[in-house]
Amino acid sequence: MERTELALIQRAIQGQPDAWQALVRTHETRVYNFGLRMTGSVDDAQDLLQEVFFSAYQNLSGFRQDAQFSTWLMRIAYNRAVDQARRRKVRDADPLPTSTETVDDRPGPAAETQSQQRNQQLQSWLAALPLEQRMVIELKFFQEMTFDDIASLESISPNTAKTRFYAGLARLKTLMGDCDGLF
């Protein structure tokens, strides 16, 4: 880990708000994008973002300084995302949204860019996967973790991680079908 980041963490533990905010700024985009893909919703991604950094701040003194801060933070993000999905399941007794309407409910600009459309399409596909498959796809492709690390994070075997990854891709392939010129 960079010395500057370690220094920031130490200063944040001492209660210096500037240091904490600098840490948040460094990692917020990654966590937010993780949330968008995992929840399929801007509101839930923003809630998750708040929860992750809240939890991180609460547990900052327990951060082992020989570890990677980003890895440690993603562990919290993983836990919070699983937790949020379970709470939502209890709340709604309903699976994740599968229609594109619920994916981004912000009033968007008149002309959405092609990349926004692509992101929304990807979000809706990912939202249609079971959580366990979506999580492995996320951790593998977007967080670039190894199967061994995924297995350790999720307390599953590496083979289970591979099976979920394969099943997730196969499901996505069906969902994508013959999609138009967006991709």
């Binding site: 700024r25 994008n33 492709f141 977007f142």
Partner: peptide, 20 residues
């Protein structure tokens, strides 16, 4: 390959101090 078309989204302004 299609998954890799994801483009990083920047966060709308949010309260970074709320976590503390």
């Amino acid at each position: 390959g299609r998954l890799l078309h994801w483009e990083q989204v920047t966060i709308p302004d949010w309260d970074r101090t709320a976590s503390t």
